[in-house]
C-alpha cells in the first residue's frame, strides 16, 4: 500500500467534508454545537492502531453500517460506555431512560452520521452512497476493527485508518467514526478525486 502525500491529503480533505457534514447533522439533531477534529488518515499497523487509537482489549460499542452503492465497505462508529451516556444526554436532554434506550438512541445517531457522511462524499464524487441499517455490538475493540477490515477483504497487517473524532463544548466525545472501504475502493476514490 503506497500513496503519495498529495493523495493522502486529498483523501483527508474528502473525509473532512464528510465528517463536517456529519457533525452538522448531529448539531442540528441535538441543537448543540458539535465539532469535528481534523480527520486522521494514516497507514498504521494493527499494533500502532491499538497503541495510538484504542487498546485491542477495550470493551466498546461498535455500530456498523454497510455501505450500499457504487463503492462497497462499512462505516464503523465506535463509542465507549462514557460516550454512550454523553451522546444519550445530548439527544434525550437529560430524560431518565434505560441503558437499552440510550443504546438505541446512539444507534440511530450513528445511522444519521453514516448517511450524512456518505451523502457528502457521494456528492463530491457524483455517485450515490447510502448505508444499510446499523448493527450495534458490545465487544473488544480489537475484535471489531480487525474483523471489519477482514470482512471487506483488507488482508494486510497495515490498514489505512480513516477516522473522524467529534467534540462537544470543547470536550472530547469518546466516539470515533471509521471508514472501512472494501479492497480497491481507496484507489478508485483517489482516482475520482483526480490526484
Amino acid at each position: 500500500m503506497k500513496y503519495t502525500d498529495l493523495q493522502i491529503d486529498g483523501l483527508r480533505e474528502m473525509i473532512n467534508i464528510g465528517g463536517g457534514n456529519a457533525a452538522t447533522s448531529i448539531s442540528k439533531m441535538v441543537n448543540e454545537k458539535i465539532d469535528m477534529k481534523v480527520p486522521e488518515v494514516a497507514i498504521l499497523s494493527y499494533q500502532e492502531l491499538y497503541q495510538k487509537v484504542m487498546a485491542d482489549d477495550d470493551e466498546v460499542y461498535g455500530v456498523i453500517s454497510k455501505i450500499v452503492g457504487e463503492y462497497q465497505g462499512a462505516i464503523l462508529f465506535v463509542v465507549t460506555d462514557k460516550a454512550v451516556n454523553q451522546l444519550a444526554d445530548l439527544i434525550l436532554k437529560g430524560t431518565q431512560v434505560s441503558w437499552d434506550v440510550k443504546l438505541s438512541a446512539v444507534s440511530e445517531l450513528s445511522n444519521i452520521i453514516a448517511n450524512s457522511f456518505l451523502n457528502a462524499i457521494g456528492k463530491l464524487l457524483d455517485v450515490q452512497l447510502i448505508s444499510s441499517l446499523p448493527q450495534i455490538k458490545n465487544d473488544f475493540f480489537g475484535a471489531l476493527i480487525s474483523s471489519a477490515y477482514l470482512a471487506f477483504d483488507q488482508y494486510d497487517e497495515q490498514v489505512m485508518v480513516i477516522r473522524n473524532e467529534f467534540t462537544y463544548a470543547e470536550k472530547k466525545l469518546d466516539a470515533s467514526l471509521f471508514l472501512i472501504p472494501e479492497k480497491g475502493v481507496l484507489d478508485s476514490l483517489i482516482k475520482s478525486l483526480g490526484i
Binding site: 494493527y46 480489537g142 471489531l144
Partner: peptide, 24 residues
C-alpha cells in the same frame, strides 16, 4: 501475542491473545 504472530513459552507462564474476532 499480537495479531498475525505466534509465541512459544513454558510453564509457569501464561500466553494471552486478545480481541479475536474472525481471527483464530
Amino acid at each position: 501475542i499480537g495479531i498475525a504472530d505466534y509465541k512459544i513459552s513454558q510453564a509457569p507462564n501464561n500466553l494471552i491473545t486478545v480481541g479475536l474476532g474472525s481471527c483464530i
